[in-house]
């Protein structure tokens, strides 16, 4: 019994010594970052000053909101703002300007219109970002030019064949029409756009489809893709992962350019874009050439 008591005292002392050593080590470690921090805070005023200078030079630019593109360039965008202190709705890439992180996945969305096959999703859980807001000339289409009045329309005449006639004004407004490329030359405007209501798309019955429901149009031909999109396999959704969760559904045209689908060198559905920066090189490697050396020649 005495022996045990002796051991315990020894261990108590030893434990104490151990603690002291640990504490000393930790405080030593703790003071170091504090010093480093002090150093950075000392250096910091210089940096903000420099930052302030660059920010002050284009004073308006500082106020100008940061806008980043979401899927592809030229489609949906999101404007950065603070939801709560230190919590932005989105973070943008300083390199490419792409959206890199979502603080609020439902920013600027509206409920998606009805669509067959989505009956099981609770009301208000399927959201989309309205495309019509992004398409700048859309409100004018049916009023300014394709308004159904004018000499050509009395008596009403429709084009006799499906050979698109280049209209300079139209091409001026939408330059990408010059490289129109969809269906390998076997499609023309009115296969997708409504004949008399030009700010609408058209379904198989000739009835108008809203621009915010482009999937109903695209699904006319790409039925397999529509099915996969509906089931969440094709395309992009952000928000909640549960199968009946609240999600923002990305629409077809947010990722694909309908007027130039096989864009880019790779001839695939998605346009080429600038990649984000690569990881740091391994220690001692001046460049990435080592990656190109194959163990076997070919």
């Amino acid at each position: 019994m005495k022996k045990i008591a002796l051991y315990t005292t020894i261990f108590a002392l030893f434990g104490g010594a151990l603690y002291v050593a640990v504490a000393a080590g930790k405080t030593g470690a703790a003071t170091q970052p504090a010093e480093a921090q002090a150093a950075t805070t000392e250096a910091a005023p210089a940096q903000p000053a420099a930052a302030a200078e660059t920010a002050a030079a284009p004073a308006d630019a500082a106020k100008e909101p940061v806008v980043c593109f979401e899927s592809r360039k030229g489609a949906s965008e999101v404007t950065q703002r603070e939801i709560r202190p230190g919590w932005p709705n989105v973070k943008c890439s300083p390199t490419t300007g792409a959206a890199l992180w979502y603080g609020d996945p439902f920013d600027g969305t509206v409920p998606m219109g009805k669509m067959p096959g989505l009956e099981n999703i609770p009301e208000g859980h399927a959201l989309v970002k309205p495309r019509s807001e992004k398409l700048a000339i859309l409100p004018m289409c049916a009023t300014a030019c394709h308004n159904g009045v004018g000499p050509k329309f009395t008596p009403p005449t429709l084009p006799k064949d499906k050979k698109p006639t280049p209209i300079p004004t139209m091409e001026g407004l939408l330059p990408e029409l010059k490289e129109f490329q969809h269906g390998r030359g076997r499609l023309w405007c009115l296969d997708c756009h409504h004949t008399t209501q030009r700010n609408k798309l058209v379904d198989n019955f000739g009835d108008p489809i809203d621009f915010d429901q482009s999937q109903l149009l695209c699904g006319k031909c790409h039925g397999d893709k529509l099915r996969d999109w509906r089931d969440g396999i094709h395309g992009k959704r952000i928000g909640e992962w549960a199968s009946d969760g609240k999600k923002r559904w990305f629409l077809c045209t947010e990722c694909h350019n309908p007027h130039n689908v096989q864009q880019g060198e790779r001839n695939r559905g998605f346009a080429q874009l600038q990649p984000e920066p690569p990881p740091p090189l391994p220690k001692g490697m001046p460049d990435m050439k080592h990656e190109l050396v194959h163990p076997v020649a070919h």
């Binding site: 996945p105 952000i238 928000g239 909640e240 990722c255 874009l273």
Partner: peptide, 16 residues
């Protein structure tokens, strides 16, 4: 209940 961050930013919807 929220998707992982990488799922949400993939521009082509490759991540599920």
């Amino acid at each position: 209940g929220r998707y992982p961050a990488c799922v949400e930013v993939c521009p082509v919807g490759a991540r599920k």
